[in-house]
């Protein structure tokens, strides 16, 4: 009642004033705060959509414009050349680079999930002295800049490090141009996040279920993989997807631990750079390759996003 009279009061008092459309909108927004929240939501949405989707649009514009016309680009393609998506595979065996990226991503993910599962079991389900310190150590290591490891790791993986034991000198194997010098650093770098996610999940599985599995005939390890991991599927999926995407997007080690050839396990990054020739820079091909390279991850995220969100927030609530 009182609201109504008050509203009518404002309306009648302001009725004499001449107002533009903005003034009228402000007036109605004051009476209807929800309208403001909605407007703010749209503004924020628009901002994020533009910053995330504009690069894709721009890549598409570049890809569709024939290379000789790429100069002073506006917001629309200066031509329509969809054949670029076929031409990009002719010039560089881009599918091989994508294959390499997938192999690196999947190998790392499997390795990370395996080790993080064991670590997550220990941190999440067992009580032992020094647990807090160890956990803190893992957290600390996860913040080290990867660049700090690069030179020592490069020396190690290219066979330039040797250990002398008495008369025998053992030199490290030369792993340059193999998946190993990428998979190992990736695994180490992305392990802490997975350990944290899985620790939370495994810690929430009731002790009774593990005890039941052990009495029924599994070892502790058997109980982990037969009962705890399946019941933590959202967590395992989250850790797996995040690891895969991180590896797929990784630039640093991917670029430096091989010679950039498809048969040397070089991933997508190297593939895109490979288009650049001595005499030309085919921006349209590089843009097309970028789009094709991003597609698998975009699809993966769209499929898995619900799982990832529930996985990342599940640990926040204790049942």
């Amino acid at each position: 009642m009182s609201n109504e009279t008050q509203g009518a009061g404002i309306g009648s008092a302001d009725a004499d004033m001449k107002r533009g459309p903005l003034g009228r909108w402000v007036d109605s927004a004051i009476k209807n705060p929800d309208k403001v929240y909605r407007a703010m939501f749209y503004v924020a949405m628009l901002f994020f959509l533009v910053t995330t989707l504009f690069p894709f649009y721009w890549l598409l514009v570049l890809a569709l414009t024939p290379n000789n016309l790429i100069a002073n680009m506006g917001l629309v393609p200066k031509g329509f050349n969809p054949e670029v998506f076929i031409a990009m595979f002719d010039r560089v065996p881009f599918h091989l680079y994508m294959f390499n990226s997938f192999v690196l991503g999947i190998t790392t993910t499997v390795l990370v999930l395996l080790i993080a599962s064991l670590a997550g079991y220990v941190f999440g389900r067992l009580r032992f002295p020094g647990k807090g310190v160890l956990m803190l150590g893992i957290l600390a290591i996860s913040y080290f800049p990867p660049a700090a490891f690069l030179i020592p790791l490069f020396e190690l993986f290219t066979g330039n490090t040797a250990i002398s034991i008495g008369m025998v000198t053992i030199s490290t194997p030369d792993l340059f141009n193999t998946p190993a010098p990428m998979v190992f650093p990736f695994s180490a770098l992305f392990l802490p996040l997975s350990i944290f996610i899985l620790t939370t999940f495994y810690g929430q599985i009731p002790d009774g279920l593990e005890d039941a599995a052990r009495v029924e005939g599994t070892t502790r390890l058997g109980a982990l993989f037969r009962v705890i991991v399946p019941l933590s599927a959202p967590g395992v999926a989250t850790a797996g997807v995040l690891t895969f995407i991180s590896v797929y997007n990784e630039f640093f080690f991917s670029f430096l631990m091989n010679n950039g050839e498809a048969d040397s396990w070089a991933p997508i990054v190297a593939g895109i750079l490979k288009y650049q020739g001595q005499f030309d820079t085919p921006y349209n091909l590089m843009a097309a390759a970028s789009i094709v390279g991003v597609l698998p991850v975009a699809i993966l995220v769209i499929i898995a996003q619900e799982r990832i969100v529930s996985g990342l927030t599940a640990g926040a609530l204790k049942e």
Binding site: P206, G208, D211, A212, A213, R214, V215, E216, T219, L231
Partner: peptide
């Protein structure tokens, strides 16, 4: 000996069926 080698079976207070 680990539980699996003892020839015992157990029923738990919280029932502990495998939900999956």
């Amino acid at each position: 000996l680990p539980p699996k080698d003892r020839g015992v079976a157990m029923v738990f207070q919280n029932i502990a069926l495998f939900p999956h």
